[in-house]
């Protein structure tokens, strides 16, 4: 694990293992790879409610709160991770 937990969000390619763990727990019917450009239509059960669960779980992993007004604007998983990173600044 990196010394600064948030630094692992800086990668433009990788989804941190802790986020992958959250993702697997919330979407047990999805068995494919978890990558930054993954979108809701590719994942069974990724609806508004599980989207909110995903955001809250990732917030708790990194100890940050994102702006709820933008919480449903993300085009893909990477956009959520970028917002988490920005929220910590």
């Amino acid at each position: 694990m990196a010394s600064d937990p948030l630094s692992e969000l800086n990668s433009d390619e990788q989804v941190p293992e802790r986020v992958v763990e959250v993702f697997r727990r919330l979407f047990p019917h999805y068995t494919g790879p978890v990558y930054r450009r993954l979108t809701a239509t590719q994942v069974p059960g990724w609806d508004s409610l599980t989207h909110a669960e995903l955001i809250m779980s990732v917030e708790e992993v990194y100890g940050v709160l994102i702006d709820p007004a933008s919480a449903f604007d993300y085009a893909d998983l990477g956009a959520l991770l970028d917002d988490i990173r920005r929220s910590s600044m």
């Binding site: 019917h29 809701a40 239509t41 590719q42 994942v43 069974p44 059960g45 990724w46 609806d47 508004s48 599980t50």
Partner: peptide, 19 residues
């Protein structure tokens, strides 16, 4: 299955648990 999910998400705003 992905085409089905895409249609459901776009038209009904719902995500199936399983297709």
């Amino acid at each position: 299955a992905e085409r089905v999910r895409e249609r459901l998400a776009q038209v009904l705003l719902v995500s199936a648990r399983e297709v």
